[in-house]
């Protein structure tokens, strides 16, 4: 290898290490015995997984909500978002792809534009809307808000997916006697499975990691998600439990990593927009 190649490879490795270092730090911290530095090795920090209590000390353990309950909340949020976005997108995408709805182009353009709006702008509006409906401080309210924000992307993805499916199979199905809904259910949906699966995973990850909506729209800590617990740990009570924080973060991270690695090939397919096979 030439000197140039060696230098570039070296540079690449340095950059990778730099990028990975925060994760390495967290990993080391999670197993550390001391709260503020990396020393020793212990799995005590992960005790909350078994006991459900973030702080094992009985004097403080009631300050934070039960981790098991919080985990259930986070799962509820992630699955709820995933399910609703997938369901609605798969139907809307189909309608926009196949039906000559008047103003279809306008609807599509609007959908695309909505996708670009940053969440922060809508927070105050969402606060008032949820209060008005009476869903403030509920996970369902957060789910609905998140679904609404993620729908534009979902619809766009599904519509493009459907656009690439051949239409003569649909015609065959209609001639065979199936109505539009049966055709969609029995023929188009199975063919769109890869796209739907990818969307479901994407939305699960999106819901799992949601912070700002929960932070704004949920006040009582029985409705907290894991992201809120992490935030709650930072700078509270004057003491800094970095190792506990790190352990919690790793715990939060694992499901996402697993999901992502398991479904990587589906997500890549979506990214390149094609539907083959």
């Amino acid at each position: 290898m030439s000197l140039g190649r060696i230098l570039i490879n070296l540079l690449a490795m340095i950059l990778i290490l730099l990028g990975l270092s925060p994760y390495a730090l967290i990993l080391l911290l999670a197993f550390s015995e001391k709260p503020t530095s990396i020393q020793g090795f212990t799995i005590d920090n992960f005790a909350f997984i078994a006991t459900g209590k973030l702080l094992q000390d009985p004097r403080y353990s009631h300050i934070y909500p039960n981790i098991h309950a919080v985990l259930v909340n986070t799962l509820f949020l992630a699955l709820g978002v995933s399910f609703l976005v997938t369901l609605l997108s798969s139907m809307t995408g189909y309608a926009l792809s196949r039906y000559p709805v008047p103003g279809r182009r306008a609807i599509l353009a609007t959908v695309l534009a909505l996708h670009g709006i940053p969440v922060i702008i809508l927070l105050i509006g969402l606060y008032f809307v949820l209060r008005f409906i009476g869903l403030f401080n509920t996970l369902i309210g957060v789910i609905l808000a998140k679904v609404v924000l993620d729908l534009p992307l979902g619809i766009w993805i599904m519509k493009n997916f459907y656009d690439n499916l051949p239409w003569d199979i649909e015609i065959a199905s209609i001639v065979d006697g199936a109505g539009r809904f049966t055709t969609w259910l029995r023929i188009m949906l199975p063919l769109a499975k890869p796209g739907i699966a990818a969307l479901a995973v994407l939305e699960f990850i999106s819901g799992w990691g949601e912070f700002i909506l929960v932070y704004t729209l949920v006040t009582s800590n029985t409705n907290w998600t894991l992201s809120m617990v992490i935030r709650g740990l930072i700078g509270e009570m004057g003491s800094v439990n970095l190792n506990l924080l790190a352990a919690l973060s790793i715990f939060y991270l694992i499901p996402v990593l697993i999901f992502f690695i398991a479904t990587q090939k589906y997500l890549l397919r979506i990214a390149f927009g094609g539907v083959r096979g």
């Binding site: 051949p166 003569d168 199979i169 015609i171 065959a172 199905s173 001639v175 023929i187 199975p190 063919l191």
Partner: peptide, 13 residues
């Protein structure tokens, strides 16, 4: 009616 298409339009799945 029974219809037969140029590229068969069979349900692939």
């Amino acid at each position: 009616i029974g219809m037969v298409f140029q590229n068969y339009a069979l349900y692939p799945h």
